[in-house]
Amino acid sequence: MVSFVFDITHTTTYRYARPVKLGEHRVMFRPRDSHDLRVLATDLQVTPGAQDIRLIQDVYSNSVAIVQPVHEAQELTFVCTFTVEHTGSRALDLPIDAYARHHPFRYSREDRVALAHYLRPYYLKEQPRLRQWAQTFLNAEGPTDSREVLVRMNKAIRDSMTYQVRNEEGVQTPCETLDKASGTCRDFATLMIEAARALGYAARFVSGYVYGAELEQADSAGATHAWLQVYLPGAGWIPFDPTNNLIGGHDLIRVGVARHASLASPLSGTWTGAPADYLGMTVDVQVRKRA
Rank of each mutant, 00 (worst) to 15 (best):
P242E: 08
I8L: 13
D145S: 07
H71M: 13
L94S: 07
K289C: 14
G234T: 03
P121Y: 06
P19F: 11
A198M: 00
F82V: 03
R131K: 12
M161T: 09
E75I: 02
E85S: 04
V27P: 01
P69R: 01
Y99A: 13
L215S: 06
P174L: 14
R101I: 09
P239G: 08
Y118C: 06
P48E: 14
V46C: 12
R166Y: 14
I56A: 05
D93P: 00
D284M: 11
V79H: 01
A264C: 13
R26V: 13
D43R: 06
A202W: 03
Y99P: 00
R166D: 15
G256Q: 06
N244S: 10
Q57V: 08
E194C: 02
H117E: 15
L119P: 07
L279E: 15
M28Y: 04
V210D: 03
A65Q: 07
T77W: 01
T184I: 09
L92A: 07
E169A: 11
R186E: 14
Q57N: 14
A189I: 08
E214I: 03
A73S: 14
D159F: 02
V39C: 11
F4W: 12
V79K: 04
R32H: 11
G269S: 10
S207F: 08
L76A: 06
T9W: 12
E148N: 07
Y209D: 03
T144L: 04
V5A: 10
T12P: 02
S262N: 15
Y14Q: 08
D159M: 05
Q51M: 13
D251M: 02
R288F: 15
A264R: 02
F105N: 10
A264L: 13
Q45I: 15
L279G: 07
T270Y: 12
V70F: 05
R290A: 14
T270H: 10
E169N: 06
D219L: 11
P104E: 14
R290Y: 15
A156Y: 09
I56N: 04
H117D: 14
D159P: 00
S146R: 00
I96R: 03
H250T: 07
S207Y: 08
T184L: 11
L40H: 11
Q286F: 13
A274H: 08
V285I: 12
Q286W: 12
N62G: 11
L246Q: 02
G208M: 06
A261V: 08
A114V: 04
L279I: 04
L44W: 04
G256V: 04
T162W: 11
